[in-house]
């Protein structure tokens, strides 16, 4: 008999870590972004989608709400906001 033993590659895509978010989620203010991509490298889930200045987005299906992107942003252009606040807007 075998229990959970090995796993095929790519399983982290199946694990929707967005479910771990409890209170806060990032909000990209899109005002002073210089596209330095520090948030992209800091994200432990690799779920920030870079683009032109003021055009970065994140994938809420995987974002755990850890706040590292907001903490590292040199332009303070990412805020951590309450889940409800984000949804109401």
């Amino acid at each position: 008999m075998f229990g959970p033993l090995n796993c095929k590659a790519g399983t982290s895509k199946k694990n929707k870590t967005g479910a771990w978010r409890v209170e806060l989620r990032p909000k990209y203010l899109h005002q002073n972004c210089i596209a330095c991509k520090l948030c992209v490298t800091a994200c432990p889930e690799g779920c920030i989608i870079p683009g032109e200045k003021n055009a970065f987005e994140f994938d809420a299906a995987y974002c755990k709400g850890c706040g590292l992107c907001a903490a590292i942003c040199p332009k303070k252009d990412i805020a951590m906001v309450k889940e409800e606040e984000q949804k109401s807007k």
Partner: peptide, 27 residues
């Protein structure tokens, strides 16, 4: 054919991994 051997097994999985060895020992 990439595969992870000995991955993390959180409380959702660990018990079954140990149970499987126990049952295999009986086998």
């Amino acid at each position: 054919n990439p595969m992870t051997l000995g991955p993390l097994a959180d409380p959702d999985y660990y018990t079954e991994a140990r149970y499987a060895i126990q049952e295999t020992q009986k086998k």
